[in-house]
Simulated scan of single mutants.
Amino acid sequence: MPDLSGKVAIVTGCASGIGAAAVRRFVADGAKVLGTDMDETRGAALCAETGALFAVQDVSDRAAWPQIVARAVEAFGRLDILINNAGMVSGAGIGDLDDDAMFAAWDRVLAVNLTGTMAGCRAAIAAMRDNPGGAKGAIINIASTTAIAPLPTDVGYSASKGAVRVLSKSVATWCAQHQLDIRCNTVIPGATMTGILEAAEQQTPGLIAAVAKTSPLNRLADPAETAAAIAFLASDECPFMTGAEMVVDGAALSIHPGF
């Protein structure tokens, strides 16, 4: 089990799904955690349950990111880990909506999934450079298998998650070239029981069962399974691993679609 004792982490989108599982895992592994979410009720309850701190955050508000990072540093003295997990779907293919609705959906999903992730990376690096003992940290950005095999039914989500993959590599190489011991990696989850999927099931009954069949394992991932991969990347167990992608998809991307 990765040892996160004494490390300080920020986890966005902590109210449910992978974010909630990451908070639980990090606290269990010894980290001090600040969880953030727009859902104050569920986010605060999760953090109270686990002993983490909580802050309301809209990750697309780039001006607020330095304040979020400062809160973690003020509370715990440093920042070692950032998990950029918060995300949303647009629910629209390229020709599904009229222009006004399409571009509104596109702008919002990219603001959250991509600009929010970039702003988080930027604020975290600034704090990690000033850590006691020297620059050190780990950033894990959560993408999706749609970054590799995009959804025709959601152009904004697919495009934003594809961009997160490349963003992570750019961040990783910038830090490496500047001789900063700050790693940046991407986790690519497959079909996982998250709040987004639960909400979609209410609109489209049977969706969860259909999505489960996209994996040869014929099931969804438990968020805790993805959190385990995140914890490994956040730990000191893989110091040479940066700019990499860890796929946690139950082999969904490994099989020909006809089988």
Rank of each mutant, 00 (worst) to 15 (best):
D99I: 11
D100T: 10
A104S: 15
A104F: 08
W106C: 05
W106N: 07
W106I: 11
L110S: 09
L110Q: 13
A111D: 15
T115G: 03
T117S: 15
M118Y: 15
M118T: 10
R122H: 11
A124S: 05
A126S: 05
A126W: 02
M128Q: 04
M128K: 02
R129V: 01
N131V: 01
P132K: 02
A135R: 05
A135Q: 01
A135E: 02
A138H: 01
N141F: 07
I142R: 04
A143M: 07
T145S: 10
I148H: 15
P150D: 13
L151Q: 14
P152I: 05
P152W: 12
T153Q: 12
G156Y: 11
S160H: 03
S160A: 12
K161C: 04
G162P: 03
V164G: 00
L167K: 08
K169F: 00
A172V: 02
T173G: 00
W174L: 06
C175G: 03
C175D: 05
A176G: 08
A176M: 06
Q177L: 14
Q177Y: 08
L180T: 09
D181L: 06
I182H: 04
R183S: 10
C184E: 02
N185T: 12
I188G: 00
P189F: 05
T194Q: 07
G195D: 15
G195S: 03
L197D: 09
E198H: 07
A199P: 05
E201P: 08
Q203Y: 07
Q203E: 14
P205A: 10
G206R: 12
G206L: 11
A212R: 07
K213W: 11
K213L: 11
T214M: 14
S215C: 08
L217D: 01
N218H: 05
L220N: 04
A221K: 02
P223T: 04
A224G: 09
E225W: 07
T226D: 06
T226A: 02
A227D: 06
A228C: 04
A229N: 02
I230S: 02
F232T: 08
S235Y: 06
D236I: 01
